[in-house]
Amino acid sequence: MKETYKKYIKVVIGLIVAYAVFQILFQTGMINSYYNRIIRQIGIFLISALGLNLILGFTGQFTLGHAAFMSIGAYTSAILTRNFGVPFLLALIAAAFTAAVLAIIIGYPILRLTGDYLAICTLGFGEIVKVFIQNVDYLGGARGISGIENKSGFTVIFVLAALCFAIIMNLIHHSSKGRAILSVKEDEIAAQAMGINTTKYKIIAFAIGCGMAGLAGGLFAHFSQFIDPKSFDFSKSFELMTYVVLGGMGSLSGTVIGTSILIALPEWLRGLSDVVKEYRMLIYAIMLVSMMLFRPQGIMGTKEITVAGLKNFFGKIKRIFRSSSTSVNKGKEA
């Protein structure tokens, strides 16, 4: 027990240090507001991608409508803060809650479907949501909602991303529910035979994942300050899936890496010369395909980055370094 608390405190201290480092970098202008923006964007989409990884990577349910739940969260929170003056944090909770409830309502019938049929159903659901928003004047229709306050600061995104990470990590690796969810992915029929109510666990995972998408949507609305239905169409769902698959389905740290790379990459390509700039999206496409070809299981596979793993890694490097330096020294002496 003591050991647990020690680790717990260590992690919290680690988080605070990381947060402080970021803040110092922001305050001193080492990271300018452009990078601040990109980092916040990564954080927001990370929350959504973590939710998607729970559905796609851990539960094995093929969904293509994740962006729709982001739009539900975005619209819920934007309407609440803008039209009703609800406090931002409360609006975020409402965004996550609405998305999760809708996920349960939708999930109950359609999660009985499997594989590609589920994929097309969720994709259809996403399009239905989009068309619905376009046709409701109160939601601004195609003209979207502008004038949303800029509330999604680095702090709130950082805390919420860490929280979502911890929730999924705890759920998957340290609870019986998590083992049930994993069993659905591994072999649904066997899981059923063992007395696991697979539909129930699929819905639980779907609701939590979509709730996170809703949360991310709420953050996004107060980050971009403008939302329109076009921003959450099926290509956004594909994009989110790209983050998860590139990082590794079933690896949360992989999702972090995947999201960071794929959001930073097109921005980084802006820095290139004019000739290359014209081919920015072409280069992006080539890099995406080659990353999948060279690492089909994703960057992390199903592994996680751990302290032990890192120690091992750095230990190896150190040993290599030491052995080479001693050999150099030896050479000198000789």
């Binding site: 647990t4 260590k10 680690g14 340290h174 980055i305 302290v307 890192l310």
Partner: peptide
């Protein structure tokens, strides 16, 4: 819980 947070820190 220890692993969780350790992993999170690294992430």
């Amino acid at each position: 819980k220890k692993n969780v947070f350790a992993k999170m820190g690294c992430t």
